[in-house]
Amino acid sequence: MNHPTDSQPAHSGPALEAVGLGLQYQGGWALRNCEFQVPLGRVCGVMGPNGSGKSTLLALGARLLAPTEGELRVLGEAGDTPELRSRVGFVAQDKPLYPTFTVAETLRLGRELNPHWDQEFAQRIVDQGELSGKTRIGSLSGGQRTRVALALALGKRPELLLLDEPMADLDPLARHQLMGTLMAEAAEHGTTIVLSSHILAELEGVIDHLLLVRSGRIVLAGDPDEILDTHLLLTGGGDLSQLADHTVLESRSTGRRTTALVRTGTPVTEGWESDRPSLENLLLGYLRSPALDTTTPSTHSKAAA
């Protein structure tokens, strides 16, 4: 079996690196001023609400879109070369497959169009779902199509795998199984996996890198644990003006008690109960934070990355 990733990796910088990245649609900017890095070998979750720019980001990485400004370096490459295509796997959100092809023909497409195709691996993913090779793609359920699409992307043995909402159509069993396959692939071959989702539960405990997208801006980027270390969830009856030294991302008051999510380097003690926020607290705080409406998102992501 020929696994290029088994040998020394071809590239040692970040798997993804955005510099001033922006993409303009007719109606406005889908992404703007994005600055972030995803190191090699990470499992990176791209989180954010629907329409925030997650799919655009992944499509830029797969070179299906070209940026309007800035650049997104993929495995060190700024442009779109045939060589890069063979190193990057991509599954679009709607899992496009040819409906008249059979499952076996779809895998053959992968074999014919990818020089480092791993038939055994792709076949195993399909077999796990008890899919017959003779079944036409058009007659498969959404979850079964996802399985074939993932088999196609994984069989290519890419160094970087970009998956847009890969688990959305899957039942819990299949989700668990395929997530296990993905994690094993990442662990065994050092494949960098970037997967988007708007469901936190899908990614929690799986990802070791996070990109949070809000309205076309990257508001958080980095290792989730490190990010959590620099944030505090404060509860108390204190006055918010006491927190002037810290960045208050969000605060809510219920009666006399106030809860605030702050980014800080120093501990806050006086008048406040301080907790380490959960990932969910953090994400919701950042997605709701009015403070981020006016600040430049790139400064946050730079600080976090």
Binding site: S7, R87, E105, P115, H116
Partner: peptide, 27 residues
């Protein structure tokens, strides 16, 4: 099988014309 060149890129063989013709024929 694969070799690593000094400049860090792993050469990969190109897709054969016959493979593209198979897909074109199938489609």
């Amino acid at each position: 099988m694969s070799t690593t060149v000094l400049n860090g890129t792993v050469p990969r063989p190109a897709v054969r014309p016959s493979s593209l013709l198979w897909l074109a024929w199938r489609q």
